[in-house]
Design a protein around this nucleic acid. Sequence first.
DNA 1: TTGCATAACTAACAAGCGTTAGTTAGTCGA
DNA 2: TCGACTAACTAACGCTTGTTAGTTATGCAA
Lengths: 191, 191
Amino acid sequence: MSPRKIQILQQASALMRTKGYASTTVRDIANSLNIEASSLYNHISSKEEILETICASLANQFESGILEINDIYFNAKEKLKMAIESHIRILTQDLNASYVFIHEWRNLGENALNEFVRRRDLYEKEFRDILYLGEKEGTFTDVDEKFVVITILSSLNSTIEWYKPNGQLSPKDVSNKLSDFILNGLLNSQA
Amino acid sequence: MSPRKIQILQQASALMRTKGYASTTVRDIANSLNIEASSLYNHISSKEEILETICASLANQFESGILEINDIYFNAKEKLKMAIESHIRILTQDLNASYVFIHEWRNLGENALNEFVRRRDLYEKEFRDILYLGEKEGTFTDVDEKFVVITILSSLNSTIEWYKPNGQLSPKDVSNKLSDFILNGLLNSQA
DNA sequence: TTGCATAACTAACAAGCGTTAGTTAGTCGA
DNA sequence: TCGACTAACTAACGCTTGTTAGTTATGCAA
């Protein structure tokens, strides 16, 4: 991928984060790079290709992250913590792209959309496997895995709504907070 | 509000849920009602008014729900459970509208957008107050309230991604599951 | 020096957008 | 029966959209 194309994807992510995919025009993107809209087409084949590239790139990262963790032998609690950490590390690496990934994937064309959903289901399945393991071990309470996985992932994804890359908290700090919340809940166990 | 206008809002919500606000055209909406696009303007003043109406209606419900709960004297645990139940009851009442409310509010015009954010912040503040109370009582662990409220609300909102109105679970069942998850976490306290 | 690749440009297209103007058929209370 | 109201229509406007065609300046490799 050429440096210029990377630059285009970054500008596009930033715009789509605030305006959404559909409301971001190729002229907007071109404008932010101080070139004409038609010049973009020396680097991309269509507007949708931008969205596909952003979404596929993040999907790749999430997928290889969870597969690596589930390939090694660990107990469920450790695996879940690692999965959360991997998810947050990827999310916080490029907030603009993450935002587009999470909120704009519905705008993908039919084929890319089907592929996206397929891969998301796979990712959720890997998380469910961790929960199954935890119940078998007796570490986790009996839960509705499908429900809990969606709830957990939604909690993790909410990070992009408030996280500041140059703020006090490192990605690791954030995943620690989330792991604590997800594992222990709000109630004070001392009381 | 005339029955016809309600019908328009319902069709619009359904379309915007799947296609998004920006990609749903007034011709799409008219088409789903078997009328011409221009005929819509006998009932609405603009496309954006549709979005504003949907968002404002839900904001009203959420707001009066939480204010009512926080006005009465209860302990934090009870308040939180009630707030969750209220939130889920409203969300599940009209899934299409809820979906638009949660995912499409960014498309509001400048004024409506500012108002929306203001009201959302107020809603979050009411939730934070419950957490403060819980910590004062010693019921809840010390938490980063701002972080936790966003995380909780994101968990609650994920309900619209999977909930089936004619399925096994009532809204009350769902809020019970969520309350349990949020209060107790995943770890088995017996073990 | 020639020739190709890159990355920009101008100009334009066809389609689709939200919206307006003006008209018309049906309904209903006075 | 009349006049106002409602809710639909046809036709069209001006603008924006993603995209294409053709051109041009620059820089590097043979």
